[in-house]
């Protein structure tokens, strides 16, 4: 707008006659029209950018709320997961209560199982699932009569046959779940007493036919039983337990898992001192 008077003066200085003047006047009014249009365009651009700014501010509000919602969702998912795992843990403790009231065995053997799984190179998620599922391996003992479950001496053949049912009862209790952890727990419950040589129970599976989870937990379970006090025995020294495991390499246990277990025995033993508080959640 500020340039217009200058233009006009320049035109006026070229004045030669009336015709030229009216020509210039027409030119000028054309220029004025352009200036007017320019001003309109400028105003509409300013309005547009103002509107765009408002839109961006609104968008920012949405982004803020989205972040808030996502973080709240994450927190409540975490809380739900913790409550879920804590509930499983307490159910396992309830099932084991007659055997031992601290749950130390299941906590140690879960750590052993997870460590073996990790050293075998399983993905982190599977290692974690094994850690949470392993404690449920003996949950079927809840269906075994007390006089057999708590008998201090050796079981008769008949009693032992009844005792063997705990793996089937456990798998039944855990069956038809949608949860990955519970599905794995079912697999472990049914297979943790199978033996590499096919002489285990309940199905007498051998070698690779036994699920990997069952082979891992089977070893962790036996190792902890050997090194712990039981109603019928005192704890064996670690060396003696290792000897027994070595002897059962390729018999009771998967030879590869035994090798990995023995290679990492120091780290495994260092994990045996866990207390309840630091295990779940």
């Amino acid at each position: 707008m500020g340039r217009l008077p200058t233009l006009r003066l320049k035109n006026e200085s070229n004045l030669m006659g009336k015709n030229d003047f009216s020509k210039d006047s027409r030119r000028f009014s054309q220029l004025e029209k352009y200036a007017q249009d320019l001003s309109n365009v400028y105003r509409s651009e300013r309005e547009k950018s103002k509107k765009l700014e408002t839109t961006y501010r609104q968008l920012e509000m949405y982004a803020d709320d989205m972040n808030k919602t996502i973080s709240e969702l994450r927190d409540s998912n975490q809380e739900l997961r913790e409550a879920y795992l804590d509930t499983i843990h307490r159910l396992v403790l309830a099932a084991e209560y007659k055997d031992e009231d601290t749950g130390d065995h299941i906590i140690r053997m879960s750590h052993y199982s997870a460590l073996i799984a990790e050293k075998l190179g399983l993905p982190a998620k599977e290692v974690q699932n094994i850690f949470y599922a392993a404690p449920m391996h003996d949950i079927g003992k809840i269906g075994i009569p007390d006089n057999i479950l708590m008998k201090p001496g050796k079981l008769t053949d008949e009693e032992f046959t009844t005792m063997k049912n705990h793996s089937i009862i456990g798998a039944n209790l855990l069956s038809y779940s949608k949860s990955e952890v519970l599905k794995l727990a079912e697999e472990i419950a049914i297979s943790h007493h199978e033996k590499w040589n096919g002489k285990g129970y309940p199905q007498g599976l051998s070698g690779d036919k036994i699920p990997l989870s069952g082979r891992i937990v089977g070893l962790a379970d036996v190792f902890d039983a050997l090194t712990s006090k039981r109603p019928y025995k005192n704890p064996f020294p670690v060396e003696k337990a290792i000897d027994i495991i070595k002897k059962e390499r390729g018999e009771h246990f998967d030879p590869h898992i035994v090798d990995v277990f023995l290679e990492n025995i120091d780290e495994i033993l260092s994990r045996s001192g866990f207390s309840i508080g630091c295990v779940f959640v």
Binding site: T54, R57, Q58, E60, M61, Y62, D64, D65, K68, T69
Partner: peptide, 12 residues
């Protein structure tokens, strides 16, 4: 009016 709301508004 029973209530008011300020633009830009928080959707939540």
């Amino acid at each position: 009016a029973d209530d008011y709301f300020v633009k830009p508004f928080s959707p939540l």
